[in-house]
Amino acid sequence: MAQILISPSKYVQGSGELYRLGEYVSALGKKALCLITDSGLKRNQAVLDKSFEGSGVSVDYEAFNRECCKKEIDRIGAVCKEKGIDVVIGVGGGKTFDTIKAVGYYHDLPVVIVPTIASTDAPCSALSVIYTEDGVFESYLFLKQNPNLVLVDTDIIAKSPSRLVVAGMGDALATYFEARACEASNASTCAAGTTTMAAQNLAELCYDTLIEEGFMAKLAADNNCCTKSLEKIIEANTLLSGIGFESGGLAGAHAIHNGFTVLPECHHMYHGEKVAFGTLVQLVLEDAPVEEIEEVLEFCLSVGLPVTLKELGVEEVTEEKIRAVAEASTVPDESIHNMPFEVTADSVYAAIMVADSLGKEYLG
């Protein structure tokens, strides 16, 4: 199997870059549809409108219904067809991006992604995570190409709630450990090949950046200030993790996240918060060195990522609930089977319970 690395065609990150969106979009199309939540449009429409002045691009705004599901993808696709749209833009967070990427895939349209938060590594990937209308994980949709442009305005990110930046760190936390597992098992990645040295090194740089800059970036985000630390974490959360997970590979942590979507009490938690706990579970599952697990625990505590089931919203821990998570994490097509050893629902159940106990010890 070939070694493959994929990435967005262009990644732009900097202060005030949202004002240049129209300029960048003009190279891709002349009639744009911008998918954005109602609240996001209220916050950003003035800047968005300004960016398109004199660009030669007309833009229609469409409100996102907040769930990346087949019904919403079909609805937005029908709007694009009706209005003769030739380029689509997603402004906001992960589910907005996954929806607009899927629309671009089905209707062969160039895709522009504009994160207003740094909470996931979804912006850069050729992947959409599809949920049911009720928010339960359904499937992965692998796309034929990555977004044409990812534009990140660091001023906008700095104004977002710091919990979202921290959630992005949780998502990025899994990148190195999952890529390492896929390298060990020679597993196929989301890029439809095996991993490359470049992807592995980007994944490791992502982890190192989190450990070195995460706490200071969290303090900057708490104060809505864009410091060098926060700029580095935005890049780690978005670009390094995006390329790292996709071309490095997914393994246990994201499968365990998907398992937790079967518990309604976890639905209020952000993707990255669940992935962070899934990372701890993966490390327990593979019997990682204690020093490594302790470093991850200390990092999570320093930035406020969950390390126990209770922090994930599971107030009443029962064997039935956790076994349901373990079963959902180990269905035949899940990425947990990229681990370099056999994984069963029983072993995941045990790892979840031990990870929870470790978290309790550290919190205590």
Rank of each mutant, 00 (worst) to 15 (best):
G214N: 08
G214H: 05
F215D: 07
F215N: 09
F215Y: 10
F215M: 10
M216C: 09
M216R: 12
A217T: 04
A217E: 06
A217K: 00
L219E: 14
L219I: 14
A221G: 07
N224Y: 07
N224K: 12
C226L: 13
C226A: 01
T227N: 05
S229L: 07
E231P: 01
E231A: 06
E231R: 10
I233H: 02
E235N: 11
E235A: 06
A236Q: 01
N237L: 06
N237C: 11
T238R: 03
L239T: 03
L239C: 09
L240A: 14
L240F: 15
S241E: 09
S241T: 13
G242N: 15
G244D: 12
G248V: 06
G248K: 06
G249F: 11
L250M: 15
L250V: 06
A251N: 04
G252R: 07
A253N: 00
H254P: 10
A255Y: 01
I256F: 04
I256H: 00
H257P: 05
H257S: 05
N258M: 13
G259P: 07
G259H: 09
G259V: 13
T261E: 02
V262T: 15
V262H: 08
V262I: 15
P264E: 14
E265C: 15
C266F: 01
H267Q: 14
H267R: 13
H268M: 13
M269E: 11
H271C: 03
E273K: 13
K274V: 15
V275S: 13
V275M: 10
A276Q: 04
F277R: 11
F277M: 08
F277N: 04
G278Y: 02
T279V: 01
T279W: 02
L280P: 06
V281L: 10
Q282H: 01
Q282V: 05
Q282S: 07
V284Y: 04
V284Q: 01
V284K: 01
V284R: 00
V284L: 02
E286A: 12
D287A: 04
A288W: 00
V290L: 13
E292I: 01
E292D: 05
I293V: 15
V296F: 08
L297A: 07
L297T: 02
L297W: 00
E298G: 10
E298H: 14
F299R: 03
P306R: 10
P306H: 03
P306A: 12
P306Y: 08
L309R: 05
K310I: 07
K310W: 09
E311H: 06
L312K: 00
G313K: 02
G313C: 10
V314E: 07
V317F: 07
V317S: 06
E319K: 14
E319P: 08
E319A: 12
E320N: 11
